[in-house]
Design a protein around this nucleic acid. Structure first.
Lengths: 202, 202
DNA sequence: TTGACAAACTAATAGTATTAGTTTTAGAAT
DNA sequence: ATTCTAAAACTAATACTATTAGTTTGTCAA
């Protein structure tokens, strides 16, 4: 047996540490091996390739993200939950830049496995929206809208596209966006209710 | 003089063609040289490095994007302009995947030059929102909200995060988002107007 | 104590970007 | 017409990436 006690878990842990400290969504195997005190090809005794490593780190990132979101919204309902979720989402993305960037870089085509892992990410939002008593389809739409707003904000922010009008408070922009979403959702609920009443009244 | 008549313009044009055909946000110099019938290092007689090449392609992408947006909204005002812009934005991103991905990958830190180029991207939105007669600051906020929604949508769509609930119409989700934005904007206008009346009445 | 297997290694390939230094050659000047 | 120059191509090399093949080493179990 080799003497350095390397393992998949150790490699993944080191990769996560690297990503967290650099804010980049990945690490090179060379750098990883250097940190672990082995030569690069030795890593291949424990991992299949960079894709598998990325998958493992991705799994960790998703889990951390979801746990964070659930904790932030556990004791909250409706608007309070939505607001808390938005806040937690933003904070996580800023504080875990590398992991968030990784989450937001799963390639669309390949990696059906990665897509599986991402499901809980949606479920958290769906659970919150379920409290409003909307139709399944309506929830699906508004969940998309909500997530698009949250990711769009982070994305434009990190990319520097909110760099313009620097003096204007970013947090306020975000709060406006979330309130805009909530107002739209409330209007939808009214429409939805009216429609149901109309249907039952026919 | 070398005989192949290579030039910066030719290289950039080929890079753009590559990016458009592959949908990737970049090309390798090797691939580029191969297509142009020269050896890789020859490219360095015309470009400084990949960063400069990327900058040039980025410039083209921004310009194409902006021209497209302006054309789509030229004869429209207020809500019509907003809706047309949203539609044009989405269509461009889907039809010019590679260029859009490039636009949405300028790194935040470096590349202040690239940031300069991106200004017209904001101006188009600001111009449209200016028609509503809002305060400068309010426009800045809502321009951020609008752009976040548009990019968020494209981004989640391309990433496959809207892959779930496949059966539910994506276009409708997008229309809901845009309408949600418009409703929020209209509410803001009312608030804004009330505030001004209140101020002048004091 | 020996033999097998896991885990490390070395050496090599192939793909990125990039630099240094050399050759070619078109076109201007003599 | 010949020669000179400078741009534009080249070759060769370095330094990164990931990855594979094949070899050695060391521990544990028979």
């Amino acid at each position: 047996m080799g003497t350095k006690g390397l393992s998949k878990e150790l490699i993944v842990a080191e990769a996560i540490a690297c990503i967290e400290s650099t804010g980049q969504p990945g690490v090179s195997l060379h750098e990883l091996a250097r940190r672990l005190g082995v030569k690069t090809p030795s890593l291949y005794n424990h991992i299949k390739n960079t894709k598998e490593l990325q998958y493992e780190v991705f799994r960790h990132a998703i889990e951390k993200f979801v746990v964070n979101q659930k904790a932030a919204t556990l004791d909250k309902r409706k608007d309070d939950a939505v607001k808390a979720f938005a806040e937690a989402y933003h904070t996580f993305a800023v504080e875990n830049k590398g992991l968030y960037r990784l989450i937001m870089s799963i390639p669309s085509e390949d990696d059906d496995r990665a897509k599986e892992l991402a499901i809980p990410l949606l479920e958290t939002v769906v659970e919150i929206l379920s409290d409003y008593g909307l139709l399944e389809e309506t929830i699906a739409h508004w969940q998309r809208v909500f997530r698009a707003i949250l990711h769009g904000f982070i994305s434009e922010e990190e990319l520097g596209y909110f760099y313009y009008y620097r003096s204007i408070d970013l947090r306020k922009s975000r709060e406006i966006a979330v309130q805009c979403f909530l107002d739209g959702l409330h209007a939808e609920i009214e429409k939805d209710t009216e429609m149901r009443l109309g249907e039952s009244g026919q």
